[in-house]
Design a protein around this nucleic acid. Sequence first.
DNA 1: GTAAAATCAGATAATAATATCTGATTTAAT
DNA 2: ATTAAATCAGATATTATTATCTGATTTTAC
Lengths: 143, 143
Amino acid sequence: MTIIFSKKCEYGLQACLYLAANKKDEVYTSDEIAKQLKIPKEFVSKILQSLTASGLISSKKGKNGGFSLAKDPQKIKLIDIVAAIDGLDIFENCVLGFPNCSSDTPCPVHNKWGELRTKAYQMLTEETLDVFKETTLTKINNL
Amino acid sequence: MTIIFSKKCEYGLQACLYLAANKKDEVYTSDEIAKQLKIPKEFVSKILQSLTASGLISSKKGKNGGFSLAKDPQKIKLIDIVAAIDGLDIFENCVLGFPNCSSDTPCPVHNKWGELRTKAYQMLTEETLDVFKETTLTKINNL
DNA sequence: GTAAAATCAGATAATAATATCTGATTTAAT
DNA sequence: ATTAAATCAGATATTATTATCTGATTTTAC
Ligand code: FES
Ligand code: FES
């Protein structure tokens, strides 16, 4: 079951974190990223391709090719990756699945959920990828 | 896209809120519930059946039959419905999709997410269905 | 130039989630 | 008794998500 993000998005986030945690000028192949993160390689390859199309990641074709971040890790936020893959609808929709989530027509948990949703958004917005280097590395080393 | 809960769970939550907001001793057919909530009737029928099996809802078969809450709305919490349908894994898993979510092997957002997750859990745990009567009715009237 | 290693594009496959259908059974009203 | 209206069980259909495959193209190293 998905928590909040689709698998595609989760893997995309992980891959970007991986790239941010590694050497900036080097490229990493989808195979290597998949191996390190222990996620399906063809799938992550597709995701990286789409993130390349979105402009978040840049790719180098051919032998010795691979993927790297398109900008400085200090300029990329988790929300950027989410926006590119899953979109931002989750931050506007009712947690109970009712239509028209708004303070005009609130569901029973609208106020509480609204707060949490905002904080979740902040969690993805406040920091940039460079801040996560250490934690990412130790997390990956424990996979 | 799912926010947190599956459609099945969303509809189950809505249906239970509907029942809690209405007359306690009356039964409501899946058709009526579906119509009121504007959700697919066969689907909600299935969901109500499974909630009946879980013991949250009780059903009356045959003509003039239908569904009602199995206990007082004061004894049912949203979390009970979630637990019966989607389970509680979401409250234990990593929002970025990494395995082994714990403070021993935290991902970059583990601390923040942990807090939000706890608050989301509280949101579903603190109050019982009877508290939601009013809000539910006005929400449904605006569908 | 040839071979190897990579992205890339598009098709396909597999699985899960969502939704609907069919018929059986149960119950109440007439 | 008969009929109508409902749950119920199980099959089926549809759609979306996740995952894999195939081959083309690009690039580097030799
Ligand atoms: S209406 Fe439910 S969260 Fe806004
Ligand atoms: S490890 Fe990511 S939320 Fe706990």
